[in-house]
Simulated scan of single mutants.
Amino acid sequence: MINVEPVTLESNGVRLEPMTAAHVSELARAAQDGALWNIRVTSVPAPGDEGTYVNTALEMRAAGSRLPFVVRELAGDKIIGTTSYHDIMPTIDRVEIGYTWYAKSWQRTHVNASCKLMLLEHAFDTLGCKVVGFRTDNFNHASQAAIERLGAKRDGVIRHHALRRDGTIRDTVMYSIVAGEWPEVRAQLHYRLARNQQRLEA
């Protein structure tokens, strides 16, 4: 049975730190980079809602269903987003990775692959998870493409599943990586990040 506890993870110039109430203002600044709350298919907090957003994440952590992190870019020493383990199910050794967003200037960089690699390595290699899941809005095609680039398999769609901020109800696309697939997924993620580093150094 897995035991998911707060942990700090660091790789490729990015650090995942357990979220605290002290991170509210920094997360607000990150969300302002691209006015991310205007994107219909995400749950980025709008201006003034950041405190509630963080409090909800911490309440879920206290209940044992979520472990939220902030994403710190080390060279600039600034918070650039957030991600979480959630829907933690210790009895079947399952977690999901989600509640993920990054400041616009850090999207489509090495950051997402680096964070996902750290979380997947911790889930499979340290916690002993048998499966790691992902979910996203059926209209969030960018998120679906990013999840598929990780090597996750599409499990299916749960129709009429969750309320969006605008009052409409979304279908949820579910993905997963099982433990037997992890060695190949890990190798591919390391390869992608190495290629990205080579391009930066060229």
Rank of each mutant, 00 (worst) to 15 (best):
V4G: 01
L9W: 09
V14Q: 12
M19S: 04
M19N: 03
E26N: 06
E26Q: 15
L27Q: 03
L27P: 05
R29F: 00
R29H: 09
A31T: 04
D33W: 01
W37Q: 14
N38Q: 14
I39F: 13
V44A: 08
V44W: 04
D49T: 06
T52S: 09
T56H: 05
E59N: 05
E59C: 10
E59K: 13
M60N: 13
M60Q: 14
S65D: 14
R66C: 13
L67N: 06
L67R: 02
F69M: 04
V71S: 06
V71E: 09
V71D: 05
R72Y: 00
E73C: 03
L74G: 04
L74W: 03
I80R: 07
I80F: 08
T83I: 12
H86F: 13
D87M: 11
D87Y: 08
T91C: 06
I92A: 05
D93Y: 02
V95I: 14
V95P: 01
T100Y: 00
T100F: 04
W106E: 13
N112I: 08
K116Y: 04
L117N: 10
F124E: 00
D125E: 15
L127Q: 01
G128I: 02
V132Q: 04
F134T: 03
R135I: 07
A142V: 05
Q144I: 02
G151Y: 00
K153G: 01
R159K: 14
R164H: 12
D166T: 11
T172P: 06
V173E: 09
S176G: 10
I177Q: 04
I177K: 07
G180Q: 08
V185N: 06
V185K: 10
L193S: 14
R195M: 11
N196E: 09
R199S: 06
E201K: 03
